[in-house]
Design a protein around this nucleic acid. Structure first.
Length: 923
RNA sequence: GCGGAUGUGGCGAAAUUGGUAGACGCACUAGACUUAGGAUCUAGCGCCGCGAGGCAUGGGGGUUCGAGUCCCUCCAUCCGCACCA
């Protein structure tokens, strides 16, 4: 009987669906385990072989944990709101809800092919009102909360208002130090003042505290996409999606006050099991630094400039001060003589795109004409402006120490500003001294001190003089939370007199209205601004960004049909953290950071009991495409083989990898490819073949290098496909896809099948296994279990292959061996395992069979083979009785001919036993 | 520039704590069975050497009886951040 995988897989997939085999309950006597994939955005391109890599790994692990006796939550859903669906709608006139549904159906069909054990009864789709009702609800809670810096947690805004009524804002200063209350011109108020404020003023003040708030700010505006983007959605000055130019623009936007959580997001990293690379990426993004703020008086002015520095110890090396070109006091500082030059420079800076700035890194700047005074020496310090100082970080002003900072050094050299040396001989005049080991010279009361001691001393003196203080800074900015788009969650917000007011919970969900046109509204507003019924109600016309729905979906899976809450307390208490979260590294600073923040917020407010969403994160590597190229001689229809192309002027074209065998082009298929666009093509061959060029690139439709899993499943079966994806290599590693080796895995499954079935039918016996057969089995149990636990699926698959090879050699068809092996194999090849389990006459499903227990006793051997090395180099191998004592073994070894030959007459210095199984002689 | 990772046969890769480097698979070679095979099976397969043996884990150095693994140093590739004071 043949291994008919198509029939088998179809049969069991149907069976599992009918019996709801993967449905999981929120009540169980078993311990829980939560295995989660990063849910996909259902794009129109469908799945390629890269997508299922992580899904297969998580499915194997989920099935393994289930066999091990856990109640396993393993859900799947769709992150369905987002830009591409809307772009598609603009181009093709298809409503996003329609194309999204189509794409989801397509994804589902493709996923089902592979035999995943998802509990589809828990499916969530972020674009459905039943789901986004709760996204809106959580947003409302963020809006109605503030961050209590004393308690270091979020609380209801009512708590804050009560405190204002009693104490004014003395306990809770306004986070933005520059904010001034219009009625008083101050940023502090008493209880009495609070009582006097108008509602309008009160709301304006509260907006300064809310964790979701609306404000004007510099945003990343992408004209092509017609929307703003979060910092993590902008890469190298262009949009992550589409690569369109991005400019800075001042707009009214919604923000999440993620900066309040910066410290906790950093500390939380110590409690989770993420890779170092991932933790580093996150902590770099958060970008905590400690240093000091120092005030420099301006000569001839009552003002002083505050700078931020991480190296207060170098204060005696300050040779100039640099302000960001956008610095707000610039007009007061610039002298008449320098006014034109400064205006010119600011125009120049404005003319430069983000991209140019990043690419060129030119040294540029201009003197303002004013001088600051050194807080200790009173020395006159020129004040410059330059684009290398960023308005958005620190105070937008720095004290430049050329001898201690490379950028300041280059700037000083470029503009011939005299450099003060505070590092003695360590500073050569060529390069700044940036090591923290340096000892200070020429620095008044700091001379002779090291970095730390000096920094503390400086801060102490500054404090005493009232000219500075210790200060912590973060790179992370509050997250832009609005998009001028249609296909996203509407904000549950109504505007009155320029103040946003929350809808009541009873009004949720605020449903996304149907629109005919997705064109942007006026003044950079979203398409919703074109709908009268919407604007009549003064609803917010922006929608939430893509990451809103994905910031909490892992909680919804716990209790997906709850209409009273986003997730019941019992459900979140039971499932708690996601035990294993699998996905790509591309979400390191976006999704993962936002999810962590939302979780901490929901924890603070008492709705869930844990404050880190993901206990362990596994990053699967990207599967790249291996592209193939053909070379058309310029202006002709003749294609020249790769090896000969340099003799001609050619254009390089991507060619579909599916019509290339290795690197050899199938010319017949090529002529029919793309509706026979190249039917009349001529070829210049080498050795009778057309050889293609190759390159490893991202897998994408436009590069014709995608491999569709459906075709592979059709040809080899889901079980082969699953095992092959795992066999490719370590899960975290990126690698180009190569279909070649799949035959080997398929052969393995056929070989396994033949252990059960001969030509005439089932050949499994009830005979008692031999010692070698037991050993083959238990070796595999041990290896597969260990490998699964450490997510090393490629080596686990290899272990199966070794086992089946050995059993085949021994012609072992014994149930006592084969049945446990099947259970081991279930997570990897569930269809085949279930089929053979039934064939062996077992009742019930193999999905719930008990995982076989490893027993050491089967691995113990009767005699031992000792590798014998001399001075660490293997010389011979000796078979010695197991029960021999060390002394007896030593005597035997010394009698050995090979050993004697190598020892000759040299004296034996040492006799080393390694782990009782290896011998080394030192001579 | 900073941070992280990786480097082992023709290829994908193993080697979990320093202990027989190259398991397993692909490709390749020879053979068997076949009308045939892109089916199956057997054997071989790091390099040099007839052999004994020697040399091999990016290069160089070190620690050790023994190093792919630990330390120093240099090189290459990939990823992330990028004027963050």
């Amino acid at each position: 009987m043949e291994y008919n995988f198509r029939e088998i897989e179809k049969k069991w997939q149907q069976h599992w669906q009918q019996t709801q085999a993967y449905k999981v309950s929120n009540t169980s006597h078993k311990p829980k385990f939560y295995v989660l994939d990063m849910f996909p955005y259902p794009s129109g391109a469908g799945l390629h072989v890269g997508h299922p890599l992580g899904y297969i790994a998580s499915d194997i692990f989920a099935r393994y944990k289930r066999l091990k006796g856990f109640n396993v939550l393993h859900p799947m859903g769709y992150d369905a709101f987002g830009l591409p669906a809307e772009q598609y709608a603009l181009e093709h006139g298809v409503h996003p809800s329609v194309s999204t549904e189509q794409n989801i159906n397509n994804f589902r069909k493709q996923l089902d092919n592979i035999g995943f054990s998802y509990d589809w009864s828990r499916e969530v789709i972020t674009s459905e009102p039943a789901y986004y009702k709760w996204t809106q609800w959580i947003f409302l809670q963020l809006f109605k909360s503030f961050y209590n810096r004393t308690l270091n947690k979020a609380q209801s805004i009512d708590v804050l208002v009560n405190d204002f009524v009693q104490n004014g804002n003395i306990n809770h200063p306004i986070p933005d130090e520059n904010f001034v209350i219009p009625e008083t011109g101050k940023n502090q108020f008493s209880a009495a003042e609070w009582a006097q404020f108008s509602d309008h003023t009160r709301e304006l003040i509260l907006l300064e505290y809310r964790l979701a708030f609306c404000g004007y700010g510099e945003v990343n505006w992408c004209e092509a996409l017609g929307t703003v983007l979060a910092n993590d959605e902008v890469v190298n000055g262009v949009s992550e999606r589409g690569g369109h130019p991005v400019v800075k623009k001042k707009l009214r936007q919604w923000y999440l006050r993620i900066t309040e959580y910066a410290d906790r997001l950093l500390e939380g990293l110590e409690t989770v099991d993420f890779s170092d690379a991932m933790k580093d990426m996150q902590s770099n993004w958060i970008g905590k630094s400690t240093g000091a703020e120092v005030q420099f008086a301006i000569e001839g002015s009552s003002r002083s400039i505050t700078v931020y520095t991480t190296r207060p110890d170098t204060i005696f090396g300050v040779d100039f001060i640099v302000l960001a070109p956008e610095h707000e006091w610039l007009p007061e500082i610039v002298t008449n003589a320098q006014n034109d030059a400064v205006i010119q420079y600011i125009d120049y800076v404005k003319s430069r795109s983000e991209r140019e700035r990043i690419a060129e890194k030119k040294i540029s700047g201009v003197f303002t004409g004013s001088y600051a005074l050194h807080p200790f020496t009173g020395k006159k310090i020129p004040i410059w402006i330059s684009e290398y100082v960023l308005a958005g970080y620190g105070t937008g002003a720095i004290m430049a120490v050329p001898s201690g900072d490379e950028r300041d050094h280059r700037f000083a050299k470029h503009f011939n500003i005299p450099i003060t040396n505070i590092f003695g001989e360590a500073y050569t005049g060529e390069e700044a001294v940036t090591t923290k080991e340096a000892v200070l010279h020429n620095s008044d009361f700091l001379t002779g001190l090291n970095v730390n001691a000096a920094a503390n001393a400086v801060i102490e003196r500054l404090l005493a003089k009232g000219r500075g203080k210790k200060k912590t800074n973060f790179k992370i900015r509050d997250a832009a939370f609005s998009r001028q788009r249609y296909w996203g969650e509407p904000f549950p917000i109504q505007w009155k007199n320029d103040i946003p007011y929350p809808l009541s919970e009873a009004q949720l969900p605020l449903k996304l209205p149907y629109v005919e046109s997705y064109k942007p509204g006026p003044e950079g507003d979203g398409p919703l601004a074109n709908i009268e019924a919407w604007t009549e109600n003064n609803y917010e016309t922006n929608t939430m960004p893509g990451y809103a729905g994905s910031s909490w979906y892992f909680l919804r899976f716990m209790d997906p049909h709850n209409t009273q809450a986003f997730c019941s307390q019992q459900a979140s208490a039971y499932w708690n953290q996601v035990d294993i979260y699998i996905g790509g590294t591309e979400h390191a600073v976006g999704h993962l950071l936002y999810s962590r923040m939302w979780t901490k917020f929901l924890f603070d407010r008492g709705w869930i009991g844990h404050d880190e969403p993901f206990k362990k994160l596994v990053n699967q590597g990207m599967i790249q495409g291996s592209s193939r190229f053909v070379y058309r001689i310029h202006g002709t229809n003749t294609f020249v083989s790769h090896g000969l192309k340099d003799k001609y002027t050619t254009n390089t074209l991507h060619v579909d990898v599916n019509i290339v065998d290795g690197v050899e082009l199938d010319i017949t298929l090529f002529k029919t490819w793309k509706n026979a666009e190249f039917a009349d093509a001529q070829f210049i061959l080498e050795n009778g073949k057309y050889i293609c060029g190759t390159e490893v690139e991202k897998m994408s439709k436009s590069k014709f290098n995608t491999i569709n899993p459906d075709q592979l499943v059709e040809k080899y079966g889901a079980d082969t496909f699953r095992m092959y994806e795992m066999f490719l290599g370590p899960i975290e590693q990126s690698k180009p896809w190569d279909t070649k080796g799949i035959e080997g895995v398929h052969r393995f499954l056929k070989k396994l099948w033949r252990l059960f079935y001969g030509e005439s039918g089932l050949i499994v016996t009830d005979d008692e296994p031999t010692a070698d057969e037991w050993k083959a089995l238990h070796k595999t149990i041990k290896k597969v279990e260990e490998d699964t636990e450490r997510f090393s699926f490629n080596t686990a698959v290899s272990a199966f292959m070794v086992c089946v090879n050995e059993l085949t050699d021994m012609q072992c068809h014994k149930k006592a061996i084969l049945q446990p092996l099947l259970i081991l194999l279930t997570p990897f090849a569930p269809h085949l395992a279930e089929e053979l389990w039934k064939a062996l006459g077992n009742a019930g499903s193999i999905l719930d069979a008990p995982y076989p227990a490893f027993d050491e006793k089967y691995l113990i051997e009767s005699s031992k083979s000792y590798p014998v090395s001399i001075n660490g180099k293997l010389r011979t191998t000796m078979l010695l009785p197991l029960n021999a004592t060390q002394t007896e073994v030593e005597a035997e070894v010394l009698k050995n001919e090979v050993v004697q030959k190598w020892m000759e007459d040299k004296p034996l210095k040492k006799f080393i036993f390694v782990k009782g199984k290896m011998i080394n002689l030192v001579i």
